[in-house]
């Protein structure tokens, strides 16, 4: 009788730990980066594509000049007309484009959309977490 109670208790304990484990795993997966929006890629995956990546910095020229991902080309919605020729010169059809911006990423989202829709470049991704993701150790 005692053996049966202990066995059932052990099974209950293991089963009770399962949802907690699932939740903890999901938590680790999501944090600190949060869910991927459509067209986003995580930094680890984008880094694995190197050197076949064209990094596009959609932050302001001042932030780009201060610090950026090595080799990144700067362009944002404000200077699109001026900067698009330089981006096309740096582009290669065998490279994947990864656009990054500030954490919230409206500028990066707009640049990525325009590269895809107006320029019909493909593939174009947005870096999840923006430049901050690159800065995190």
């Amino acid at each position: 009788m005692i053996g049966r109670i202990l066995r059932e208790s052990a099974i209950i304990a293991v089963l009770a730990a399962l949802p907690a484990g699932v939740m903890a795993w999901q938590h680790l997966q999501v944090k600190p980066e949060g869910p991927l929006a459509p067209g986003e890629v995580r930094l680890s995956e984008a880094k694995a594509w190197e050197p076949a990546v064209l990094w596009v910095d959609a932050r302001s020229p001042a932030k780009h000049a201060h610090r950026t991902i090595p080799g990144a080309v700067q362009i944002d919605p404000e200077n699109w007309e001026e900067r698009i020729p330089a981006l096309l010169d740096a582009w290669d059809p065998d490279k994947r484009i990864v656009v990054f911006g500030d954490r919230e990423g409206d500028a990066a989202a707009t640049v990525a959309l325009r590269l895809r829709e107006e320029m019909q470049l493909s593939p174009v991704w947005m870096l999840h977490g923006g430049f901050e993701a690159w800065l995190r150790p």
Partner: peptide, 25 residues
């Protein structure tokens, strides 16, 4: 003064650390 293709991302955060992303194009 914005023209052409524009995209706005909206982040919705819940009380249990959930996060959803909305996309306006």
């Amino acid at each position: 003064s914005r023209r052409g293709l524009q995209r706005k991302l909206i982040s919705v955060k819940g009380d249990k650390d959930q996060e959803w992303r909305l996309d306006l194009r």
